[in-house]
Simulated assay, not measured.
Amino acid sequence: MSATRSAAASVETVFAVLADPTTHAAIDGTGWVQEPIDQATLTEVGQIFRMAMYHPDARDGYYEVANKIHVLDPPRAIGWLTGHDPQGDGNLEFGGWSWRYDLASSGPSETEVTLTYDWSAVPESVRSYLRFPPFGPEHLPNSLRHLADLAARTSRM
């Protein structure tokens, strides 16, 4: 599933916003992303960054995800696999879905952003209890609108 939108900011600015985990709650189109647990800028493939999340169907509503960078091509692409630490012992498991942003410059202060959510590697054992996609069709366009607004504000600073 993917969506594309134009952002009134340079490709470098949009990439910098995406590479900053502290912006992800503001970008999220569902309201599930709460705050970063790891705040370091995303700089390398294999880097893990954790996020505090909320979903009413989760036990007590709150949970954490661990994201692993699997695509990093500044300033053209960034992507991560989403997983968790089921035993709390540091051994991460990834569920087979990923997020990817592809950026293309449309001029000095215009960027075309494509957001792709791919769940094709989710095993049947996970699909038996999680519906995919786990959100409505408005999520990706909402996220891209939030990203475009944040990047435009950032570029004016």
Rank of each mutant, 00 (worst) to 15 (best):
G88W: 08
V65E: 09
A151W: 11
S98W: 13
T154W: 10
L103Q: 11
W119C: 08
D89L: 02
M53C: 10
Q34D: 06
T22H: 10
S6F: 11
T4L: 05
H146V: 09
W97P: 04
P137K: 01
E64P: 00
T116E: 00
V14N: 08
W99A: 13
I78D: 08
T111Y: 01
W80S: 02
A52L: 13
A9N: 01
E110N: 07
L81N: 12
A16Q: 04
T30D: 04
G107Y: 07
E35P: 07
S120D: 03
P133C: 03
E110M: 15
L147I: 10
Q87W: 13
A66F: 09
S128F: 06
D38P: 11
V17G: 01
P141Y: 04
V71G: 04
S2F: 12
L72N: 13
H139M: 05
R153N: 14
T13Y: 00
L115K: 06
E12K: 08
E35A: 15
R131M: 11
L130G: 08
V65Y: 01
L18W: 03
R156I: 11
T116L: 03
Y101P: 13
W97G: 10
H146L: 12
S10C: 01
V71D: 01
S105A: 14
R127F: 06
V11P: 15
Y63E: 05
I48Y: 08
M1Q: 11
P86Y: 09
E93D: 08
R50P: 03
T82V: 15
P123Y: 03
P108M: 08
Y129W: 14
M157C: 15
V65Q: 05
A40W: 01
A3E: 00
R76E: 12
E93W: 12
W32P: 00
R131V: 15
W80K: 02
S120Y: 13
F132T: 07
V14S: 00
F135V: 00
M1P: 03
P134Y: 12
D102M: 06
A7K: 04
L147P: 06
W119A: 11
H146G: 06
R100F: 12
D28K: 08
A26I: 03
H84I: 12
S6Y: 12
A25K: 03
Q39S: 14
A8M: 05
F15Q: 00
E35N: 12
S109F: 14
D73M: 06
Y63T: 15
A40R: 07
V14W: 02
P36I: 01
H84K: 09
W119Y: 15
G79P: 00
R59S: 13
G46P: 02
F49D: 01
P86N: 10
R145Q: 14
A77N: 03
R5E: 05
M1F: 00
M51N: 09
A8C: 07
